[in-house]
């Protein structure tokens, strides 16, 4: 078995695909491309691929990651080409690298995600609200889903918030916890900043990171980061 790590983007109309939709799209592209993907054993064999972190419906992802296991070796660039030939516009493999087989799957080590939002209008008190949040020790909010209402401290999940000028436009950068140890959704942060009603604000996920000893590491360094 051979372990590959793929970096891909999901953009444009395809941002409306759910995580499961995306998985189906990958699996069917693999079959069309004739890629010898490895399958799990058992009654109901499943192709061995796992995404680093599900991306919500409606969000674009610039650098998303996926672990893929093949039963035969394939040259990385060839593999990338055959994928991209089979993808609809909006979905693109940016880089593929080979990974040692004993490596942990990304899903278990991803700890942070960088979300970026354009800010068509910056409310005057936004920088203050933002600084205020970063100064707090705890920030307890009520989360409600179909079944439960529970209180969650969101503060530990917010690593950094920044407003920067990108090409003359105000842009909000949100570095947030994600993955198996809990996290916060970008929409929840926009609510904290009182920006949730601005329908002109578009959020996308720029990148995912592995948390290692308190520092952020780009997965295998296979995609460039322009943050921090």
């Amino acid at each position: 078995m051979y372990h590959y790590r793929l970096c891909f983007s999901k953009e444009g109309d395809l941002k409306f695909l759910s995580h499961l939709d995306l998985m189906r799209t990958f699996i069917r592209a693999l079959r069309r491309a004739g890629v010898p993907v490895a399958y799990s054993k058992g009654f109901n064999p499943q192709p061995k691929l796992s995404f680093a972190a599900p991306l919500g419906v409606g969000l674009e992802g610039k650098n998303e990651y996926l672990d893929l296991y093949l039963s035969e070796h394939r040259e990385e660039n060839k593999l990338m080409e055959s994928f991209n030939e089979q993808f609809p516009p909006g979905l693109k493999i940016k880089k593929i690298s080979t990974v040692e087989l004993n490596q942990h799957p990304l899903a278990s080590v991803i700890g942070a995600a960088l979300y970026v939002a354009n800010l068509p209008a910056v409310p005057p008190d936004l920088p203050q609200t933002l600084a205020g949040i970063l100064h707090m020790d705890t920030l307890v909010k009520v989360r409600q889903d179909k079944k439960n209402v529970k209180k969650v401290d969101l503060r530990p999940f917010i690593y950094d918030l920044k407003i920067k000028d990108v090409d003359g436009k105000d842009t909000l950068f949100m570095l947030l916890a994600t993955g198996s140890k809990g996290g916060v959704r970008p929409q929840e942060v926009l609510e904290l900043l009182h920006l949730e009603r601005d329908t002109e604000i578009k959020v996308y996920r720029q990148d995912l990171f592995i948390l290692e000893g308190g520092t952020l590491k780009n997965p295998e360094g296979i995609c460039s980061v322009y943050y921090l």
Binding site: D13, F16, L17, Q86
Partner: peptide, 20 residues
Amino acid sequence: DISRLLERVRKPASYLGREI
């Protein structure tokens, strides 16, 4: 326009029509 429509519905991908 379509993106503005799809952002507001429960199953946006059903209206995309950009399938393989």
